[in-house]
Amino acid sequence: SDFTIRIGDRTLHLKNVSEEILKILEELLRRGIDFEELRKIVEELIK
């Protein structure tokens, strides 16, 4: 499924993301992860 994360004025667009990855990202966001850290993790996950 497609997913968009907005943190402040920044946006991260994800396409064809599995439910498992979404759950991980949601947990990281709940813990207050930094946007740049989140972006790096996402890039690793979707390689």
Rank of each mutant, 00 (worst) to 15 (best):
V17Q: 02
D2S: 05
I46H: 12
L25F: 03
V17G: 03
I46R: 08
E43T: 09
F35N: 05
S1W: 15
R30F: 07
G32F: 02
I33T: 12
V42C: 07
I5R: 00
E26W: 04
E26R: 10
E37T: 12
D2F: 01
T11L: 09
T4R: 04
R39G: 09
K15E: 10
K23E: 11
G32L: 02
E20P: 15
L38K: 01
I21E: 15
L14F: 07
K40S: 13
R31D: 09
I41S: 06
E20V: 04
L14K: 00
L29C: 08
V17H: 01
F3D: 02
F3N: 02
V17C: 04
I46F: 15
L25T: 09
R39E: 15
I33P: 08
I21M: 15
E27S: 08
K15S: 12
R31A: 12
I21D: 15
I5A: 02
K47A: 12
L25P: 00
L12D: 00
N16I: 04
R10E: 14
R39C: 08
I5C: 07
V17W: 01
G32M: 03
L12I: 12
E19A: 14
I33L: 12
I41G: 03
H13E: 12
K40L: 14
E43A: 10
E44L: 07
S18P: 14
K15Q: 08
R39Y: 11
I41K: 08
F35M: 07
L45Y: 07
L38G: 02
H13K: 06
E36F: 06
F3I: 15
V42P: 00
L14V: 09
F35A: 07
I7S: 02
T11I: 13
F3C: 14
I46A: 10
H13T: 08
E27N: 09
L22Y: 08
D34F: 04
D9V: 03
E19M: 10
L14W: 01
I24L: 12
R6P: 05
S1K: 14
I5W: 01
D9G: 09
E36D: 13
E27A: 07
L12T: 00
R6Y: 10
V17D: 03
